[in-house]
Structure formats: C-alpha cells, structure tokens
Amino acid sequence: MSKNVIASSAVRARKLSADEIAEIEHEMKLYPDKRAVGLEALKIVQKHQGWVSDESLLAIAKYLNIPIADLEGVATFFNLVYRHPVGKNVILFCNSVSCWIMGCDGLREHIKKEVGIDFGETSEDDEFTMIPVPCLGDCDRAPVMMVGSDLHRNLTSEKIDQIISRYRNK
C-alpha cells in the first residue's frame, strides 16, 4: 500500500461519473464557495461508489480545486463518510445512554454472535458493516438502530434476526 500512497494525484484520481458531476454542480449553486461543497461532494460520491476511496477523494479535490489535505481532514472528521469499503448495508447502532439503559449492549453481543461483526467490522459475505452512532433521537422507542436509511425501533434479539434476514434477502 505504501507505494501507491505517494503516487501523484494526477495519476490516481478517478474519473467522476456524469451523474456525480451533475449532482456536485447542483450543490455548487447553493453555496457561495467551492470549499463548502466538499462534504456534499464526498457524500455524493459515497452514494454512488459505496465509500470514498483515495482515488475518489483526489478526484473531488481536483474538481473543486480545493487542497487535498483539507478535504481529507473533512472526510476523516465526519463519521458518516466512509474512507474504507463497507458492506452493502451499514448498521448504525445507537449505543447512547437511553439505548444503553434499555439493553443495547446485549443486542450488540447478539449481532456479534449471529452476523459475526462488532463495531468497525464487515461481515464475511460483505452484506453488513456495523458502526456505533451518537443518539439517534428516538429514545422513547429505544433500543434503536438504522440499517441504510431506515430506522428500526423497540429492538429485541428476535426483531434483529428478522431485520437481518430481510436485508440479506433483498
């Protein structure tokens, strides 16, 4: 890996797709400068590619003409920007205080046992990646977690089994 990292950005930048560029251009109309579009562009690319590779990051920096280091600083700051490949479905597991009181630790163990992943890990079949997330703001129906963009509430081990098999068969 070390060899690739020092290769020049010009060589390694990915070619952004027409869709990606169109969406980035749309965002550029909403902000007075290009730097403000950086995070939006990272999210757009992630939506299309699943994650933000070095090649994608360099492509965005070049396209917006902003320093690579600045953009990398932003990419690594925000927990919903993935700088590593993730599974097809990302589980955002809430482990904040209300979910903790309602027993989310046991559910985390359950996912560990049944899906074989803990925080920061991806299942062998590439179906699921699980990461912890700050309070999801649905505490009266704790414990909760998101899978992709869907919120799942009042979780139990049985409910998690059903949810997992539903996404697996999608």
Binding site: S96, C135, G137, C139, D140
Partner: peptide, 8 residues
C-alpha cells in the same frame, strides 16, 4: 443537528 443523548 439533534444529537444530545436522550433528546428526541
């Protein structure tokens, strides 16, 4: 940006 633990 509601993210305060326990706030919904």
């Amino acid at each position: 940006d509601e993210m305060e633990p326990g706030t919904f």
